[in-house]
Structures are given as C-alpha cells and as structure tokens.
Amino acid sequence: MKTNRRSFITKSIVGAALLTNANLFSAQAESMVSLKKSKKISINQNDIILFQGDSITDNGRDRNNKNVNDNGALGSGYVNLAAANLLEKYADKNLKIYNRGISGNRVPDLQNRWQQDTLDLQPTILSILIGVNDFWRTKDSGATNTPEQFKKQYQDLLQQTLSKLPQVKLIIGEPFGVKNVKHVTDDWYPDFLAYQNACVEISKEFDAALISYQSIFDQAQLKASGSYWTTDGVHTSLAGASLMAKGWLDVIK
C-alpha cells in the first residue's frame, strides 16, 4: 500500500479549492482515457467484495435478504452480472459478494449507515458508485450540497473506511448521465461535471481503481442511442447493466 494512502488515515482533510471550468472540461477529456490508466485490482482467496451505492447499484435487490452470492440479494443490475462472472471465473477462491446499494442514496446517506452496511462486513474489496443523486437533488428538490461539499463528504467517508479497514482495495465508479434521455438535459451541464471530477480526483487521492462510466456510455452511443442503454439517462436497461458490469470487470486483473 502506498505511503501517501496510509497518510490519509491519520491526517485531517482540508477543504478543496474551487474548481474552474477549465478543470471540469479537462477532467471530462481525462475520463475518456482513464480506463486505460486505472489501476487494477487483484482477486485473492476468501475475498469479501462489497458493492455500495444508490439505485443503480440497488436495482431491485431484496434488502431483507442478507445472504452472500444470492440472486435476490444482488439485485438485477450490473452487480448481479459482475458477481456471476466473478463467481464462475474464480470458483476456487471462496468469494463472498454483497450488494448494499440503496435507491436514492447520497454520500450523507452512506455515512449514516456505513458502520452496519460496510464496516461490519469487513470487505477486502469495496466498490462505490455514488454522486448522481448528490447532484440531481440540487436540480429537482432544491438541495444545496455543492461539489466541494460532496467531495469533502466523500473524502471523510473514505478516510473513515481506511482507518477501520486499512488494507481494503477501493473501486470508485464515476457517476454518469446519458444526455437527452428523459431526465438528463442540457440543464445538467456544466454543473454535473464538477461532481464527476471530484470522483476522479478522489480515486487518485485514495489510490483507488476508477471506472469511467461516463466514457463507457459515451462510447456505447456510437453503437446505439442513449435510450437503448438507459431508461431515463441514469438507470440502466439490461444492455446498460451489462455494459457497466464489463466496465467493472475491466479493472480486475
């Protein structure tokens, strides 16, 4: 584990500097190639893999079902598809895979349930996809959480995680929006880019693998329209879920 990552466990985090428009658009360009640059995560014997996030991760899972490696507990989205691949490919590794995504969640919601739904499970690999609701609620519900506040909350969450689970391997999913499909309109931009950029920066600060979902969906639209991959610009179709699962599995070496 890198020295600069260990130092995050003990040092306090200062407020982030204000982002410029140039930073935002350069981050968007960087996202187009970050899949190639992203660090890779190895699968080891007895790994505990936990998926955390909002409705995209939740995807209809039975929240009363706490079993590992269970269809009902994993939902019907990208988590289930990725888990199926992992369990087949690494049948000899005794993997335990959980889904604890909850629809509508923002980072503060994760903070409120982090002990029970993450730390108590003691994952060795932790995948987080969060951020679209942190932005979206500022548009449809009058929330006032800024990109800077979002980034600080996310940093605090990961600092807490590393203080309890210093060896955990982190995977950060970039929040995405497929433009001109129902909810994702021109009004989202450029503001949404700041939340995406925060996730890119956080992945570097915490030595996490980054899944550039925005780039993945942008490239997919060269084959089919956005409405083919998502139902509303955010939530995936079956094809979109498969696309996300493949993106997730690409960071596994």
Rank of each mutant, 00 (worst) to 15 (best):
I56N: 03
F192T: 05
I48R: 12
L87W: 02
N59I: 00
K66Y: 10
D218K: 09
T230P: 05
K39V: 07
Q52K: 05
N105Q: 03
A220G: 01
I211R: 04
L18K: 15
C199A: 12
T144H: 05
E201T: 14
V68S: 02
S141M: 14
S34A: 14
A143K: 08
A224S: 10
L86F: 02
N85L: 06
A208M: 07
S212W: 02
T124C: 04
N99M: 05
T230H: 01
D191A: 15
G233H: 01
A22E: 14
S103I: 01
L86M: 07
N80F: 12
K246A: 09
H235G: 10
A208N: 11
F150E: 02
Q52R: 10
N94F: 09
D70I: 02
N105I: 03
Q52L: 14
S203W: 06
G77S: 11
N80S: 13
L129D: 00
K66D: 01
Q122S: 13
Q167T: 15
D62G: 00
D186C: 05
I9T: 12
D187I: 04
Q221V: 02
W188C: 00
R63W: 02
G72N: 11
D232C: 07
D62T: 06
R5A: 11
R5Q: 13
N85C: 09
G240L: 00
S212F: 00
V251R: 08
Q167L: 13
P166N: 07
N133F: 10
K37Y: 10
G173E: 05
A22H: 13
R61L: 00
N71S: 13
Q52N: 10
K139M: 14
S203L: 00
K40W: 08
